[in-house]
């Protein structure tokens, strides 16, 4: 019979020291393209989602549209790329900070509104040992009635519009909505169509967005810290 308790104790603490220390391990994030001066319009042309835009002095980045296809990352016209992940942005709804009592006790309901295994895989890791969401006093709850935050992934499919609306309605005030991943922000590669709403904002108000396809676990945690006022949001559109 395996002794799981001993195993567990012997393993020690495996959690990242971020945000107290920087997290620079390779592969914790896909990183992102950065606006650059002096780049030719050619660099922008490779982007399939118009996340890169040629402007007067170089190439601007609309990171909310980036699907992490990496097509601008290699070759002669490669864009500069940074290895960060603290990139949560404010959403369309201007919301004031949550009251201070939420700073160390926040309950989150995750809703899959058509997300693929990328976002599903990353969100499942936020409370795994390498990231340990609970150390921030943030908890995943099974019922929207106990939730302060609705974290939504996927472009919101036709059949999920009503469940998403109902989940939002069931939450007590004050409540916040976080759109996770480019699909949830604007439909991503699925766009708006007969089958997809083209983003959570089409169905319920959105307070925060987490760009990325998928956003890595630390970007998701960063967003939840931003909801509690413990981290700052970023401007996701960047000019050279």
């Amino acid at each position: 019979m395996a002794n799981w308790v001993l195993r567990s104790l012997a393993r020690g603490i495996r959690t990242t020291r971020w945000p107290r220390a920087e997290e620079t391990s390779l592969g914790v994030t896909p990183g992102r393209p950065r606006a650059a001066t002096g780049m030719s319009a050619e660099a922008a042309e490779r982007c399939p989602t118009a996340a890169l835009m040629p402007v007067e002095h170089g190439v601007a980045v609309g990171f909310e549209r980036c699907v992490h296809c990496q097509r601008c990352r290699h070759g002669a016209t490669a864009m500069p790329w940074s290895g960060d992940f603290e990139w949560t942005g404010g959403g369309p709804r201007e919301s004031v900070d949550l009251p201070a009592r939420f700073r160390r006790s926040l309950h989150v309901r995750y809703v899959d509104a058509g997300a693929c295994g990328g976002c599903m895989g990353e969100v499942r890791l936020i409370d795994a040992p390498p990231y340990n969401l609970h150390r921030f006093g943030i908890f995943i709850t099974a019922s929207p009635r106990d939730a302060d935050v609705l974290l939504v992934g996927g472009p919101v499919t036709e059949a999920m519009r009503t469940p998403v609306r109902k989940a939002y309605a069931a939450m007590p005030d004050p409540k916040r909505v976080v759109a996770m991943g480019v699909c949830a922000i604007n439909g991503g590669v699925f766009g708006a169509s007969f089958a997809s709403a083209g983003g959570v904002g089409e169905v319920i108000p959105v307070d925060y967005v987490i760009p990325g396809c998928p956003p890595p676990p630390l970007a998701i945690i960063h967003a939840l810290l931003a909801v509690t006022g413990r981290a700052a949001t970023q401007v996701t559109a960047e000019q050279p």
Binding site: S25, L26, G27, V28, T29, P30, G31, V67, H68, C69, Q70, R71, R73, G117, G118, G121, E122, L125, A128, P130, C213, P214, P216
Partner: peptide
Amino acid sequence: EEDLLRLSGAVAGHRYLFGL
């Protein structure tokens, strides 16, 4: 799983191998 995702990220630039 996380270590394999990081390995994919380090080698292929993307944790889920998109774009490769």
